[in-house]
Design a protein around this nucleic acid. Structure first.
Lengths: 231, 231
DNA sequence: CGGTCCATTGAGCACCATCAAGACTTGTGG
DNA sequence: CCACAAGTCTTGATGGTGCTCAATGGACCG
């Protein structure tokens, strides 16, 4: 075991979850968790393979997607720091339902399913916290279901852009400027549309004076209008 | 307290969940649970109101829906015997996210949120079972998200019909015959479309020789074809 | 300076919601 | 038992949204 990790120092929502662990349990977790640095577009696990481990995102962001019949990817969700991946599979003992892939460079800890389950048995409070978290995620997923079905591409795109603005960014960016690291293809997937439609939508916004669209940067000129579009 | 209930005798998936309770705990649950017989189209709780209780479906079926901006109902899910309603709200301490309404006559037990939570504290194993169940439902919801977004009305309708066939029915019906107790409007909601489109879809199937459509009964003539449509 | 990849733009079309009208069922009161 | 009314289901016509296919335009890289 080359690297070691201290789950106590882990920031974000995961801390909330693990904060109830006793020192001894936390030590056990830290010992079981194996961190790994992923590059962009590396897969963490694949849909259909047995759920041997649970993954805890320390930094970076990850997309979860399923492959649908016609072959293209359906993005089921995006996870960030503090989120757990593969929880369902480990709990239910079923294969992963989705494939997880990093969007950007990320550091993610792998926790063997068995270790996690035994920890869960030892510490019911963590179980309760987990229930609450799952309940919360459930609601978010429901929101997503409604959004995908009811809201038009324009609205979803506006929401996506607003999320990106709020995302904590590194030094260089000015307020209102979104650096696009993803390709249009990928961006379209996250919104749930095609690259063509996304392009049209963005340039539509641009010609309304709301955005300035560049290949890898989007400047928001009229945030008020954008917020109105996102309702 | 007029009526009393024995949670041990409750059939279905709920039994799985409560089977791990000790006698004493089960007695407590049975005492806390208040059964109530609902007629069709009665609401059990409303979206936005505080989550004071959890509901356990004993018989009948229930639709969960949200009201969307334009005013119409978006059906988030359907629950049947053994399912719990309002779990999320109780766990997270947030208001109900959806409104629950019976589709048919139903018997449903109300369990005060506090009683349930204290039971959960006393019995970690139940917590674990609950986690598993939530994990499973999570997956189903994800399936629904994909289905709603990707599958066309025809496919969704076919799936719906197949589900209805498999549903345990009371004496009178012949195999392959579906008694429609719901109106077209309601049926359309469950599938996620409009009454007009549903009507066209059903009669389209009929003219392909797959179904025989009557106002309140649908006979499946060609199950193979229907299964193929549902993929 | 070509070649390749990605983004954009255009044209056409499928699906389905909407609006509108007609057919049928059901209920009510005379 | 009939007549009328109200509701539901069906059918038709139309339009919008967004996907698909195809062509063009840049950017980046060798």
């Amino acid at each position: 075991m080359s690297t070691s990790v201290d789950c106590r120092s882990c920031t974000g929502a995961a801390h909330d979850l693990f904060s109830c662990l006793l020192d001894e349990q936390r030590a056990k977790l830290s010992k079981a968790a194996v961190p790994h640095a992923y590059g962009p577009h590396e897969s963490i696990f694949h849909s259909g393979t047995p759920s041997l481990a649970l993954y805890c995102v320390r930094s970076g962001s990850v997309k979860l997607f399923r492959r649908v019949n016609n072959g293209d990817e359906f993005v089921v969700g995006i996870r960030g720091p503090g989120d757990l991946l593969g929880l369902r599979g480990v709990l239910a003992g079923t294969p992963y339902a989705a494939t997880a892939m990093t969007l950007e460079p990320a550091v993610i800890c792998a926790i063997p399913g068995e270790s996690f389950l035994s920890l869960l048995r030892e510490n019911p409070l963590m179980g309760f916290r987990l229930l609450q978290r799952l309940a919360h995620n459930f609601r978010l997923l429901e929101d997503q279901l409604v959004e995908r079905t009811y809201d038009r591409v324009g609205k979803r795109t506006a929401r996506f852009l607003i999320q990106q603005i709020q995302k904590p960014e590194e030094g260089t960016s000015e307020p209102g400027t979104i650096a696009i690291s993803a390709s249009r293809e990928e961006m379209a997937q996250l919104i749930g549309t095609t690259p063509e439609t996304l392009s049209r939508t963005l340039h539509g916004f641009a010609s309304d004076g709301i955005l300035e669209v560049d290949r890898r940067e989007i400047r928001v000129l009229d945030l008020t209008a954008l917020l109105r579009l996102a309702e």
